[in-house]
């Protein structure tokens, strides 16, 4: 018989690390990440699905974490902005190309929308054919569902182009940071 609960214990792999938590079933994934797991990089700007600040990857796909209950991701893997950079195995981190691009292109001001943009763009750029030059339509589609009140978007779009260029296999090879096509980025 199916159990009907008000509280559940769940296990979620967050940024590669299995995490356990016991939560009221009504806890939104955004709140669980922020307040129960202490991953405050994921932000909450509206809690009704419009702004995209809370976007995280569930099994690699961008979703609004304010529109998912934490219990629903039991057994799934979640990537937040804290998990975008890669360990350099020397105690430091190698930033994801989109993180680099945001800094280089001044694509953030207050930074509140930034985590949602970063994970959305990272997923978008990883899903596309990296060898092709990115089109304006692709850029618009990738950034189109997130709100930013500060930047007017111009530099965010610029950062997407920048990151896409950096992720092209040829570019990626000679930066040495990340090999194209190995699925790492």
């Amino acid at each position: 018989m199916t159990s009907v609960d008000t509280e559940r214990s769940i296990t979620v792999t967050v940024n590669g690390v299995p995490r356990k938590a016991t939560l009221p079933v009504r806890r939104l994934l955004s709140d669980a990440l922020r307040h129960d797991l202490g991953l405050t990089g994921t932000h909450v700007g509206c809690e009704h699905g419009v702004c995209g600040a809370c976007t995280v990857l569930v099994d690699g796909t961008p979703v609004r974490s304010c529109l998912v209950f934490a219990v629903q991701v039991d057994g799934a893997s979640v990537t937040t902005v804290e998990g975008l950079a890669r360990d350099d195995h020397q105690g430091g981190q190698v930033l994801h190309p989109v993180q680099e691009a945001f800094r280089e292109c001044h694509a953030l001001q207050c930074g509140f929308c930034t985590p949602g943009f970063l994970v959305t763009i990272a997923a978008g750029l990883e899903a596309r054919d990296r060898s092709a030059e990115i089109t304006e339509e692709e850029v618009d589609e990738i950034v189109g569902g997130n709100l930013c009140r500060c930047t007017g978007y111009a530099n965010i779009k610029k950062a997407v182009r920048h990151a896409a260029a950096a992720m092209r296999p040829a570019e990626a090879d000679h930066t040495g940071h990340f090999g194209g096509g190995d699925g790492a980025w």
Partner: peptide, 17 residues
């Protein structure tokens, strides 16, 4: 290039909540 970005792009900003 902005110095505050280093923490903000990795989710290490510290906002009120």
């Amino acid at each position: 290039r902005r110095r505050e970005d280093a923490r903000l792009i990795v989710g290490k900003g510290r906002y009120l909540d």
